[in-house]
């Protein structure tokens, strides 16, 4: 059972997470059928930029975040932006985007000049996230936990960040037990996905580099 305080925390973070919309003009661009690899690439960069802005807005609402040292705020966001983006993409891919958009999005990604060695792990990750059948609360909390990781590079006051992250991990564990009572490994699986997410930081940097070279 969550305490009242914990339930309020979950509701608050979920609401902040739900406020992240999918811009209408992007849906239209996604649905436009005829597009070149270059156009697809440009659309993806536009989506990525919007993603980052949306992640920052969500992060600003996390309890205690704005009280952190300003440069630590930057370090946390820089360190987690790519991971948060992939988490959000996984959720959109598995949950919010209707069938057609998912196919269109996948098509655009596969035809954007990105090398197969980056595409395959991306979609494998989306599918493995889908297999977990996470609820919205889990996605919201996992995103917050990812962003509030005290071990990011350049974070100076790690203890302050830990104090913000710990209560969220506690709550997530309870929610996992509640939502997935038949699967006691579920929480551990979620944490395992966080480790998988970290591999995307390196992948993403490599992918951008190879894009530029191409």
């Amino acid at each position: 059972e969550l305490t009242r305080e914990q339930q309020n925390l979950v509701n608050y973070i979920l609401e902040a997470h739900l406020k992240q919309g999918f811009p209408a003009d992007m849906s239209n661009k996604l649905l436009r059928e005829q597009s070149s690899a270059e156009e697809n690439f440009l659309l993806l960069t536009e989506m990525a930029t919007t993603h980052v802005q949306v992640i920052v807005e969500f992060t600003k609402k996390l309890p205690g975040f704005q009280a952190l040292d300003h440069e630590d705020q930057i370090a946390l966001l820089k360190g987690s932006a790519v991971e948060a983006m992939f988490l959000r993409s996984a959720q959109i891919f598995n949950e919010k985007v209707p069938e057609d958009h998912t196919e269109q999005l996948e098509d655009k990604i596969r035809n954007s000049g990105i090398s197969q060695e980056y595409i395959t792990p991306m979609f494998n990750f989306y599918k493995s996230m889908g297999d977990l059948k996470m609820c919205r609360e889990e996605y919201a909390l996992l995103t917050a936990i990812t962003i509030l990781s005290p071990d990011r590079q350049y974070v100076r006051n790690r203890e302050s960040v830990e104090k913000l992250q710990e209560p969220l991990i506690e709550v997530l564990q309870k929610i996992c037990k509640r939502q997935h009572p038949g699967n006691p490994q579920h929480f551990a699986c979620l944490l395992g996905r966080l480790t998988e997410l970290r591999t995307f930081n390196h992948q993403h940097a490599e992918m951008l580099m190879s894009w530029k070279v191409n």
């Binding site: 980052v52 802005q53 920052v56 930057i74 966001l77 820089k78």
Partner: peptide
């Protein structure tokens, strides 16, 4: 890398509330 600089720039601006989302 230039890509990292771009990311930080977006983050700083968004933190200051200079971007409409």
């Amino acid at each position: 890398p230039a890509s990292n600089l771009g990311l930080e720039d977006i983050i700083r601006k968004a933190l200051m509330g200079n971007i409409e989302t």
